[in-house]
Nucleic acid binder design. Structure first.
Ligand code: FES
Ligand code: FES
Lengths: 154, 154
DNA sequence: ACCATTAAAGATATTAATATCTTTTACTAT
DNA sequence: ATAGTAAAAGATATTAATATCTTTAATGGT
């Protein structure tokens, strides 16, 4: 439903929203390490997001990526549009040429409400609101540094 | 979430469940046309499903693919396991290394209930039960031959 | 002015998914 | 037996996604 590229991009922008500011810019290297993503690939994605004015950047010493006030008011959906486009979301779960209520595939009415819900979240909430929610409800965008105990038998 | 391959495979098995029988075997060519999928690619997939005993086939004149009673009692989930494996389903929607309730990503509690629901449907219902439901509730597995009127402005 | 730093841009490489082609094998009807 | 049909199997081709490398441009500190 989302490409790896897009997943990296979403987590990156949330990471920047949480950790960066105009006078605390962060380089790709750090971001890639923290999110455990391939560094040069992520660089490409951040460049793309910068071109689309979803993140801000400056070059040179103390340079790096960050989000300004305007960037914080964008939505996750904007990131998806920038990286993946909307197609993947609109497609039928079983590969029909069209996903719609009039000619529903066997799982359409399971998939469709989910899509509405997650699309709503991506589209109607700002990055800033996402951050508040992440912090209030202890959500994670990386598993680095977390104790991951394996599922032991019951 | 599902590869194209897997989507083709699922729709094919449902197609066979609805249209074929021991004495009405159907060739790849027909199936591919009806479902609007690439023919030789679909052939490969059907071979794979046949190896895994999810569909039946015979060669030669009047040969083709069909489902026997046993095949009808498998689940869609078996098709997914055969073609895609389970990984894609288990993965976190935002690309975290692990998807679990203890370290949830920002959308985990939107995604997780959906996953449960669709997985339940795929795993607990037999192909045969799917067919009944498809017929009782007018679901489609192909848009071929359907009038697809474009969405006109309100 | 110069150097170190970091993003931007463009080119290239690798991999996995998708798709097709060719040959072989099994089966049926005549 | 023989010919025709259709799947099975194996090899190949194409495409898209993922990943990396190299060069260039901008910036800040000394
Ligand atoms: S028609 Fe298949 S998900 Fe909507
Ligand atoms: S942790 Fe991301 S979907 Fe479960």
């Amino acid at each position: 439903m989302l490409s790896n590229a897009c997943k990296y991009a979403i987590r990156s922008i949330l990471y920047l929203a949480i950790n960066s500011s105009e006078d605390n810019k962060i380089g790709v290297k750090i971001i890639a390490e923290e999110l455990e993503t391939p560094q040069p690939f992520l660089a490409k994605l951040l460049q793309q997001l910068t071109r689309d004015k979803l993140v801000s950047s400056t070059k040179g010493p103390n340079g790096g990526f960050y989000l300004n006030e305007k960037n914080l008011n964008n939505a996750v959906w904007d990131v998806i549009i920038s990286i993946d486009g909307t197609d993947k979301f609109d497609n039928c779960f079983l590969g029909l040429a069209k996903c719609d209520d009039r000619n529903p595939c066997p799982v359409h009415f399971i998939v469709s409400p989910f899509k509405e819900k997650i699309l709503g979240s991506f589209r109607d909430k700002t990055i800033e609101e996402y951050v508040v929610e992440i912090q209030n409800t202890n959500r994670v965008i990386s598993l680095k540094d977390l104790d991951l105990f394996e599922d032991e038998g019951s």
